[in-house]
Write a protein that binds this DNA or RNA. Structure first.
Length: 422
RNA sequence: GGAGGGAUGGCCGAGCGGUCAAAGGCAGCAGACUGUAAAUCUGCCGACGUACGUCUACGUAGGUUCGAAUCCUGCUCCCUCCA
């Protein structure tokens, strides 16, 4: 079945935007989606305190689903995170403590609220925790109930398993069980929520079909699996690294200004693709964007950054960023700090009413040692209030902060509003 | 259980008694050119003292030596082959 023949609006749109990698049964799913609202889920393990751009495609998927009148479920991996998914990894995951997992799960939920509408309505999103149905199952029960439905023969053919074996990397028994838990999730959700569709990244294919199979074995019902393509940047890397860190969706982990910059600076070749994947802008509109020559594409990049930032961080935050961008890139007022990420200069760095330049750059997060700060200065990339710093040993008086936060820059693109510790 | 090989900076990977803070590559940072892009070119890329310097580092604990990432011994972990 080619992507052009979809009849359900959801599949049609999502296919056109380039989300789809594989499906257990395109035709049947397409029919189901036309007939009635479908309940679908994606599982998220709480391995980090925030989601990052790599997860964005999954979130967008749920969002689209909701927009087309279906019901999205989010499963927090309270149980599965304790096991560790081996899919797509060469090494075992570092196991997290229970407290850490709980904390991460609480943190993750914030992000979903930005993208989805929650509630009790028929198409309202809902968050569930798979720990709820695993915590009371005994080992014997689990083995007796589900064990007979999984053959080792089949499990050994799973990509995630085979890859480890082929590379002679260890795969622990713990990890080997991950797919069973994820499969039981699907069954449990089918029973509790009439959920018949599981979405996920392409590396989840194995886990997903095992789950769909389990649903069929226990209930006779057809459950669907649909996976997304692995999104890479034009230079072939996984998405999501910028300025030394991951591109987090949570403003507590990455300032929205930096988030905006990440999208503003994507490779030319990625703009159209990303607009389709990460915004709600109609495909026809995206394709009509003027980008014939050189700099024209910058408008499209701004649109991309604006749209995504607005959906993840909100209108108000975006407005602040625009002020900062105007000041720092369009050169209106060189030392405006509005909308820039804030950093704090600890009082302890002040000696006799003066601050050393190197301390200023360390406090700003642009250098992790005095030596690094000096190198930055020597390289000509260090600026304070727009003025290039020449002297690696310069001392600045406290009066520098008299008017409020000070703009500190590393290179042309990284700016920070440095304020004095209270 | 036996035999052999290995563990080097964020990663890959050379070095195999002094000239080693350790080649080279990747990643990262800054500069130039541009369009806040890509490609290219230049510089930087352990910490502290602004160069020369000092300290900490080549799995881990000791030892030999004027001197060790380099040699020896114990330990830990990994790999290969045999059983």
């Amino acid at each position: 079945m080619t992507e052009h023949s979809f009849k359900s609006p959801f599949l049609k749109d999502v296919a056109e935007r380039g989300y789809i990698h594989q499906c257990t049964d395109f035709e049947a799913l397409d029919n189901a989606l036309q007939k009635e609202p479908v309940t679908a889920y994606i599982g998220f393990d709480a391995t980090a305190p925030s989601l990052h751009v790599g997860n964005l495609i999954q979130i967008m998927w749920l969002r689209k689903l909701q927009q087309y009148g279906h019901k999205p479920l989010i499963i927090m991996g309270g149980a599965t995170t304790r096991i560790g998914d081996p899919s797509g990894r060469d090494e075992s995951r570092q196991l997290l403590s229970d407290e850490k997992i709980e904390e991460n799960m609480r943190n993750l939920q914030k992000v979903f609220e930005k993208f989805l509408t929650f509630g009790d309505g028929p198409t309202d999103a809902k968050i569930l925790n798979n720990y709820d149905w695993f915590k009371d199952i005994s080992y014997i029960d689990l083995l007796r109930t589900y064990g007979p439905h999984f053959t080792i023969n089949r499990m050994l053919t799973m990509d995630s398993v085979r890859q480890r074996l082929d590379r002679e990397q260890p795969l622990t028994f713990l990890e080997f069980n991950y797919t069973i838990l994820q499969s039981v999730d699907f069954l449990e959700l089918y029973r509790r929520e009439k959920c018949t569709l599981q979405l996920g990244g392409s590396e989840q294919w194995g886990n997903i079909i095992n789950g769909a199979d389990l649903v069929r074995r226990f209930t006779g019902a057809q459950a669907f699996g649909l996976t997304s393509t692995l999104i890479t940047t034009a230079d072939g890397k996984k998405m999501g690294k910028s300025m030394g860190g991951a591109v987090w969706l949570d403003e507590d982990f990455l300032p929205p200004f930096d988030f905006w910059q990440y999208w503003r600076n994507v490779d030319d070749r990625d703009v159209i693709r990303f607009l389709k994947l990460f915004t709600d802008i109609p495909v026809a509109e995206i394709e009509a964007l003027p980008m014939a020559e050189g700099a024209d594409i910058n408008a499209a990049k701004t649109l991309l950054a604006d749209t995504i930032t607005q959906s993840t961080h909100g209108e108000d935050v975006l407005a602040e960023i625009h002020v900062a961008v105007l000041a720092n890139f369009q050169g209106t007022s060189g030392d405006s700090v509005d909308g820039l990420p804030e950093k704090t200069l600890p009082r302890g760095m002040i000696q006799e009413g003066q601050v050393h330049v190197t301390d200023i750059f360390m406090a700003s997060g642009f250098a992790s040692s005095k030596g690094e700060a000096r190198r930055l200065i020597k390289g000509g990339g260090a600026r304070i209030q727009g003025e290039t710093v020449q002297d690696t040993e310069a001392l600045y008086p406290m009066s520098l902060f008299a008017e409020g936060p000070v703009k500190v820059s590393s290179g042309k693109k990284r700016h920070v509003a440095l304020k004095l510790e209270d």
